[in-house]
Nucleic acid binder design. Structure first.
Length: 100
DNA sequence: AGTCGAGCGCGCA
DNA sequence: TGCGCGCTCGACT
């Protein structure tokens, strides 16, 4: 199992209407390489299976998505799933946090 | 508050 | 080998 595979595995377990942070994922993998997590998601081969838009930064902002920051599609997608976003940050994102 | 620099793991050159 | 990245955190301003 590669690092990336682990990241994707955790990511695809995120239920609809929930989110998680890069930090949590790294924590589950027992590593401090938070950056590797983001990079792994970028390199994911199955964007259909991997809901990378549900992965956000630990301060509640969306981070990057597909190389762009403040991606509107990501925001819309999350709002559709019932997550409220204000000023490019997830409101009360801790409530939506999936504990994996 | 905002900014800076270090630290991690993997990919690409 | 070396650098950069969809990040994070502790120190400084």
């Amino acid at each position: 199992m590669n690092f990336n595979q682990k990241v994707w595995d955790l990511t695809k377990r995120i239920p609809k209407g929930k989110v998680t942070t890069y930090k949590e994922i790294a924590n589950r993998l027992k590593t401090k390489a938070y950056r590797a997590v983001g990079r792994a998601l970028k390199q994911n081969k199955k964007p259909i299976i991997i809901p990378c838009h549900r992965v956000i930064k630990s301060d509640g902002s969306l981070g990057g998505y597909k190389g762009r920051l403040n991606n509107k599609e990501k925001i819309s997608l999350l709002r559709k799933e019932g997550i409220k976003i204000k000023k490019n940050k997830v409101e009360n994102f801790k409530e939506y946090l999936s504990k994996l």
